[in-house]
Amino acid sequence: MRMGDREQEIFPKDPNKTYGLMELVKGTSTRVDKGPDNMVSSWPHLLIREAYLLAITVIVVLVVAILWNAPLEAMANPAHPTNPAKAPWYFAWLQELVSYNAFWGGIAAPGLFVAGLIVVPYLDRRRRGVGRWFARERLAANLIFTFVVLVIVTITLIGMYCRGPNWNFYLPWQNPNRGNIF
């Protein structure tokens, strides 16, 4: 590293020495075998954020629970099916797919989805663009993932909002079954 004139003036170079003063770092402890880093103490920086997050989470759940009651319909009656009978919203995409093809919707789609997710880190191992949102180096991977997520979300929304009696297609605001989502 070339020393500037000003630095030469303050720290004159001694030709008999094989080492030199490179940098002065402000700190409260010595650092051995470590380059400059960007670390802070977890106390209080991390803990205070975790505490905030806990408070916010509890408050949000409480407010939602005070404002809206959990649904409770009539007592279960195996003799009288609801029309339509809907799976929980997170399985709505599977139910929608099952209405087209039982095997593909019920087994192949969820199986491929989970298996695909599991093999992703073993296929995509190059560590470029790690640690940044939507890194340009990862455009292809992000596009494929976004496509899969959008397809699942779209099918889920169709299953949740657009399916009415006899699993017929309705526009969400014309659906006679609207309101019974959760």
């Binding site: 409770l72 319909e73 007592m75 279960a76 195996p78 009288h80 009978a85 799976a87 399985f91 019974n180």
Partner: peptide, 13 residues
């Protein structure tokens, strides 16, 4: 909860 919503959702699931 064993209401209609629960029963038929699980029947479908």
């Amino acid at each position: 909860p064993w209401d209609q919503l629960a029963y038929w959702a699980v029947e479908v699931g």
